[in-house]
Amino acid sequence: MTLDRALALITSAEVGDVLQLALTGDPSARLPGFRFELDKVHHRPGADVSAVYRIWYDLPSAQARTEEWLGLTSAAVTEGVATLVHNDLVLRAWRHPADPRLPGLVSACNAEVVGGWLGAPVELETLAYRPLRRAVLAARGSRPGFVKVLRPDKAPGLAERQRLLHAAGVAPGVIGEPEPGVVISEVAEGRSLAQALVAWPDDPTQLPSPQSLVALLDALPAEAVRLHRRGSWSDRIDFHADGAIAALPELRDEIVAVREELKRLLIAAPVGPVVPTHGDFYEANIFTVDGRATSVIDVDSVGPGRRDDDLACLLGHVAVLPHLSPQHYSRVAEVVEQWRADFELRVHPASLRARTAAVILSLVAGADTATALARLDLARAWLVRAQQAL
């Protein structure tokens, strides 16, 4: 209940009072010209909810308008935050980029510092940011790279995985680890599979075949099976169903029914052996050269798992693209069917389809209502197909 209240407050207009309290320390203070914009929300059902806001207000003494970024979370962070109480609800705030659990983010957001790391001037673009968890920035210049910021205890595992895959020829190299929690990577050669999918109707030669995608997975080094195993989308189906319920509370019973039937199918369907897996194998993390799938990025989850889950991850993510951007991905369903037919020669159809449904269900949380409804319908459709296959 407390988490539900926190989510409701963080996404409401009322949160403006909390943000002004964070800036002034005075519950009754009102900043002149105060305005805010919710930039992103990261909700972890059953755990916490965090958000980032862009804020503007006037400074009469300086005759200037100030712009700031603030982070706000329900997580029990104890250091580097201001603790706020609003109607008995406790929240913590910080000035971005001073994320209390990502100490490397301050340096990673400073172009001069990153330029020093790379030995050349750069411009920075934030590509992804999950408060308290991770951030990815692109450093563009004569020596480009990608700067990934993690909790300090997570970064060594990422660097180990990336070096392992780079030695196998399937991932860009690690440039360095300049601070605890910061890993800088080389830029992958070629274009992402997402870009190839956009270009596909006009240039089909640039889209990798399903055989090429499977060959990329086959090239993952055997040593990966000795790494720590992380749960797949299907392993975490309860968590993702809770996220879907938070997004569509009025459809709770339907989502629970989908979850329970998927759990039954996942137990009943034959599954392949444990093999090296990427763990997040989808179009943004796969790179192509001349129509071949050649490398992967975002290798945090590399380790032992089931080939079924990697293939389902790709199908599930690509299947939702038409809802995300119809003008770019209107014919992607044809590609999904082509890949599915090939993948089902390699893993059991019921297992692949049920796991694809689980991936799509995981994408319901965090989407706007219309998109969440469309994804839930798509998850149901793949569930029915799994039932038919079994």
Rank of each mutant, 00 (worst) to 15 (best):
H278Q: 07
L165V: 02
A76H: 11
L132E: 00
A358T: 04
A199G: 08
L70A: 09
I297R: 00
W382Q: 07
A269K: 08
A29S: 13
V106F: 09
W117K: 07
P131I: 11
T205L: 14
R95T: 11
A108L: 05
A194P: 13
P270R: 02
A374F: 06
L207F: 11
F343E: 00
R331E: 04
H328N: 10
K148R: 06
V90T: 06
E189P: 08
I360G: 03
A75S: 09
P273A: 07
I237P: 00
E177V: 05
V335T: 00
G173H: 10
Q20L: 03
Q338D: 07
I10Q: 01
L105T: 03
R54W: 14
R375G: 01
Q387C: 02
E250S: 10
L352Q: 00
V256K: 08
H43A: 13
V90M: 06
A76G: 12
R292P: 01
G291V: 07
R340T: 14
P180K: 05
Q388P: 08
G272R: 15
P249A: 15
D48Y: 14
E14T: 15
R355P: 04
L213D: 03
I184G: 02
R306S: 12
L207I: 15
G25N: 07
P210R: 06
A6I: 11
G16M: 14
S12R: 11
A257R: 15
L23N: 09
G169A: 05
D58L: 14
P276C: 13
A168L: 05
A389K: 10
L193Q: 06
D202W: 06
I184D: 04
G366C: 03
K40G: 14
D290V: 06
V332C: 06
E125Y: 08
A159W: 06
A358D: 02
L137I: 00
E179S: 12
R133P: 04
L165I: 08
P121H: 02
P152F: 14
I267H: 14
V77G: 04
V336F: 11
Q20V: 00
D309M: 10
A284Y: 13
A293P: 05
I245T: 03
E14K: 12
T356I: 10
D368I: 01
L262H: 08
P349K: 12
H96P: 04
L31D: 06
S232K: 09
T78N: 14
K40D: 13
A6K: 09
L352A: 11
L378H: 05
E254D: 15
T11D: 12
V225I: 15
Q20K: 01
D202Y: 13
N87W: 12
D300G: 11
V149L: 02
P273D: 02
S351G: 12
L311W: 10
L390W: 05
Q162T: 15
Q388E: 15
V332Y: 00
V114L: 03
T2H: 10
Q388Y: 14
W69D: 12
L352R: 03
V122A: 05
H317A: 09
P276I: 03
A365I: 00
I286N: 01
H166Y: 09
I360Q: 07
S50C: 07
P210F: 12
E189Y: 05
D58G: 06
A247V: 01
